[in-house]
Amino acid sequence: MTFDPEFALSILPRILSTITTTLFATIIGCMGAAALGFLWEIVRRSSKPGRYTMRFLIDFIRSTPLLVQIYFFYFVLPEYGLTLPGLVVGVLALSLYYSGYLAEVFKGGIDSIPAGQFEAAKALGLSRLQLIMFVIAPQMLRNVAAPMGNYFVSLLKATPYLAIIAVPEMLSVALEIASETFRYTEPMTVVGIIFLTLALCFSGLVKVIESRLRLSPKAG
C-alpha cells in the first residue's frame, strides 16, 4: 500500500471542514492565555504571598504535561458536577497551560521597562490600575511581541490535543477517516500538511508584526 494522491485529495474537504474549530480554539485560547498570564504576572508583583503563590502556580503549570492537564480537567471536573463541552474544557486547558509561559514572557517584558516610567506615573498621581493599563501594558506588549507570538504559534500546534477528548477538529476527523478506510498515510499526511502550513503562515505573520513594531517611530 503506497500513498494515493487521489484519495488524499478526496478527503481534504472533509478534514478542512473542521478548520474553523481549530482557528476558534486558537484565537480564544491565545486571548485566554494572554489574559491569565498577565493576571498571574500582576498578582506576582503585587504582594509577598502573591509572589510565592503565583511562582508556584506558574512552575506547576510549566512542569506538568499538557496532555495530563487536559485529562485532568476533562475527567475531574464532572466528578464535581461540572460537565462542560469538550471544546470548552480544551480551550480552558490550553489557555491555562500557555498562561504559565506567557506570565514568564510578560515578566521579562515588564522588567525591561525603565524604573523612571513607574516613578513618573506615580508622581503624576496615576492609580495602580491606570499605571498598569496606560503605561506598563502598552510598553510591555511592544517588548514581548516576538516571544508572545511564538507561544501563540505553539498553542495553534497544540490544538490537535483536543482530538483526545473527542472534540471534532481536524486530527479527530483524520483519525475517523483512517479507522473507516483502514488507510492512515493519506489522512495523517493531509492533516499534517495543513497544520504545518498554518504554523508557518502564523510564524510569518508574527515576524512581520515584530518588524513593523521595530520600525515604528514610537520605539525611539
Binding site: K157, P160, A163, R183, T185
Partner: peptide
C-alpha cells in the same frame, strides 16, 4: 528543521506510528 519543529508532535506520532507499517 522546520518540518520537525513546526509540525504538531501529536500528529507526527500518530502519523509515523500508523502509516509506516503501510509503507
Amino acid at each position: 528543521i522546520e518540518f520537525w519543529r513546526s509540525s504538531p508532535v501529536i500528529i507526527l506520532i500518530y502519523g509515523f506510528y500508523f502509516s509506516l507499517p503501510g509503507l
